[in-house]
Design a protein around this nucleic acid. Structure first.
Lengths: 230, 230
DNA sequence: GTATGATTCAAACGATCGTTTGAACAGGAT
DNA sequence: ATCCTGTTCAAACGATCGTTTGAATCATAC
């Protein structure tokens, strides 16, 4: 099964997207050639430019296909919690569970390539490729703004800058959690990743512990600050 | 200053290493060509192959130069704490501070390229490039084993597998913390990264909160487990 | 059947990749 | 002055890159 793995797959477009997603994750964008993609997809070399226009457009399409659905699910999960809360601020654990729970659910889906995509996504946040980041920013704008607002309401005494940072840290932990197994095996040869369903509670405990940790130094400063003008 | 930025720098080898480190961080390994490297270093194209043998060997040398020093400092910090403790188990906060404090100190050094390197290193953990990972594994073997042993002693009631995962999560948070600014600006335009010295206490609070979080589910199971054979 | 539009195909395009070559240049020891 | 060793240089190598081309093939409507 070295080449043309998904030979008699669905239509050409989808075969290309699946092959590209998998290869991008393994080798990165630049190291993945059109010939590798079309070879694994079992289609002609010119098919990519015919269906997508260019390699860059293909990259965008690989992300858009999954990210639109992922962020819609994340917002749905948040709105479901908000509906239950009936106007009251959500508990931080509910907000975190909504965002990262949906993420890990997609990461656990090895059947339809969700796992592959989430690893790719984790790699891409820190990748300074300009046009990919621009695209990610647009796709993420609404969902991040909504979740941050929920967290601001949930933690009114925590400086917003602090929440922003901690959310960022949580994204990093999640990214490594998903990329996880391989990197862990590197410096812990005797490592079992037997039960992937364990990952979710594992990560969630860690994230909530970090989010609710005592604030650093005396940046504590509740809203009734002791000295108003520094 | 478009080309040959470090024109009258030190010797050719160092100029190449500095240029490569910076370009690898910005564009990744594959997207960085030898002509970009030698152009920015202000040296002849053939100089890389003359001094390092190949591009892959150059990549290894870029890592080795910093990583050897970084891991030596991390071990020194751990040993200093162990000397103070006089044989008693270290507090988890001391262990975490030793590992990640040294890391962030290098990341804060924008003068000598430490910041650039740490961003590059964070990207590389999750990069599945085979030969780079192999090399990282070897470089990290001792230091990770030592720190994990310290954590096992510090947290005897926590399953070792759990500690391993949480250490991995901490690495992810640190990686994002260092790559940080750019990624944060993406989905929070109104963001200040004014004071980089704040990052250290920020991250440390989060990491310790995550490390000491309640264990998920009933994996709690102290050493005097209620049922010995499952 | 024939015309029409969408798709696939083999082949080639110029550009750039990492690497190699052999000559030119440097400085110190004999 | 000569030799030797280490280094730099311009030029070229074959391989591979993303993309384009024009003909072949397919499907559908008339």
């Amino acid at each position: 099964m070295s080449e043309a793995t998904a030979k008699q797959g669905p239509d050409t477009r989808a075969r290309i997207l699946n092959a590209a997603e998998s290869l991008f994750m393994t080798h990165g964008f630049e190291a993945t050639s059109m010939r590798m993609i079309t070879g694994q997809a079992g289609v002609n070399l010119a098919a990519v430019n015919y269906h997508f226009g260019s390699k860059d457009a293909l990259i965008q399409e690989v992300f858009k296909r999954r990210l639109t659905e992922l962020n819609r699910d994340r917002l749905s999960a948040l709105e479901a919690e908000e509906a239950l809360a009936n106007g009251a601020p959500l508990k931080p654990s509910k907000i975190v569970a909504a965002f990262f729970g949906v993420s890990l659910k997609m990461a656990a889906d090895t059947e339809h390539g969700g796992a592959t995509f989430m690893r790719l996504l984790g790699r891409t946040y820190t990748e300074p490729n300009e046009f990919v980041r621009q695209f990610l920013a647009e796709e993420y704008a609404e969902v991040v703004q909504r979740f941050m607002s929920a967290l601001y309401r949930a933690l009114p005494d925590v400086p917003r800058e602090e929440i922003l940072w901690r959310f960022h840290f949580m994204m990093g932990a999640m990214s490594y959690a998903i990329a996880g197994t391989d990197a862990l095996k590197l410096f812990a040869g005797d490592f079992d990743d037997k039960d992937p369903t364990r990952l979710m509670p594992r990560l969630m405990s860690f994230l909530l512990g970090g989010l609710r940790a005592p604030l650093p130094e005396e940046v504590v400063e509740s809203r009734t600050s002791r000295r108003d003008a520094a």
